[in-house]
Design a protein around this nucleic acid. Structure first.
Lengths: 187, 187
DNA sequence: GACCATAGCACTAACGGTTAGCTTTTCAGC
DNA sequence: GCTGAAAAGCTAACCGTTAGTGCTATGGTC
């Protein structure tokens, strides 16, 4: 994908990574709210403006690694060969749920759950994913825009609900049974 | 409900109303972003801290009137006598969509639509409504928590999607056909 | 190898939403 | 009227975020 990264881009990526790592370390160590942007910048040895040139907001620092979720979701729709839409999405969402339930993610999830700002940010992030997903689904000309938006949001809902459930995978199966029924009701 | 309001509470309510009215007037007049909290406070002739003692944030000023939506939704579930769940919710959401599509609301909707901060705030507000609604639905012991949360979020999705559709009422009918199918799939 | 356009970063200073700390006013009940 | 508490006020700050400006290193071009 990136044949000759070039020194400049490598340095840029390194700076970005250093900022993200430092921020996550400080957040997990002292808590999200008590650590200020100025603290992160000082610890990463960059200027405050540099932090904001790499990340749009303080909350974005926490979700720096989750940015490919959006692409994975849309590719799960566009790249499928013959497979039906709902099962493909089911599979992808299951992988995402598993990834977030990994043991190493537990402290991060706890931090997100205990900060209203982070929760709100994640919710709006997921809504943006739903919009992208709806666009991808709408490539099928048989479905109305309303239907596509609905399925997209239902799928995102399923992710959010299953992740917080006691038994995520079982809950996800149940949720996708509902989504499948909703999808099939459009004849 | 509130037998003797009392002078103190009347004055408090009046102050709150004055702040909300002033804010909405200034926002619609000069735009949401350009008008600061200090402008609103000065124009309403109160202190900045008084504004924040009545409203949790600047965005909340815009949605001061929509606070009974949450109660209307939960009551639509708890107060129904024999009526099935989904039709009752369909009726209530239709009323809410109609209310928001009223001619007098157009400038406000336009303002909300053109401000990312307001859009995000409304989205998180709707998610809170979904949580309340899920709790109300969960009063029926036959349904799992996961199912209740799913239906609640689907219903809120339907509201959000229908409101932005070209033909809101037709879209809402289609969306509730999907929700009904999802609901019936749980046997 | 020298030259230049540009991207990345730094620094200062500010803006705007939000809150803390504390005083003053206003109402309700005795 | 007196008192305790709620409401409102004032000041001053905190913190995320941005504008403005300039410096430096890098990559492409001659």
């Amino acid at each position: 994908m990136t044949a000759p990264p070039g020194r400049r881009e490598r340095k840029k990526a390194a700076t970005r990574q250093k900022i993200a790592d430092t921020a996550l370390r400080l957040f997990l160590d002292r808590g999200y709210d008590p650590v200020g942007i100025r603290d992160v910048a000082a610890e990463a040895d960059v200027a405050v403006t540099t932090v904001f040139s790499h990340f749009a907001s303080k909350e974005a620092l926490v979700f720096a690694q989750d940015e490919d979720f959006e692409h994975r979701l849309t590719r799960a729709v566009t790249d499928r060969t013959g497979e039906a839409l709902i099962p493909a999405l089911h599979r992808e969402i299951r992988a995402m749920v598993r990834h977030c339930a990994a043991r190493e993610r537990a402290p991060i999830q706890r931090m997100i759950g205990s900060s209203p700002a982070l929760r709100t940010y994640e919710d709006s992030m997921l809504l943006r994913y739903a919009d992208s997903l709806a666009t991808a689904i709408a490539a099928d000309p048989d479905r109305t825009p309303t239907t596509c938006r609905a399925i997209a949001r239902f799928v995102i809902d399923a992710y959010a609900i299953a992740r917080d459930a006691a038994d995520p995978e079982t809950a996800l199966d149940e949720l996708f049974r509902m989504i499948g029924a909703a999808w099939d009701a459009l004849d």
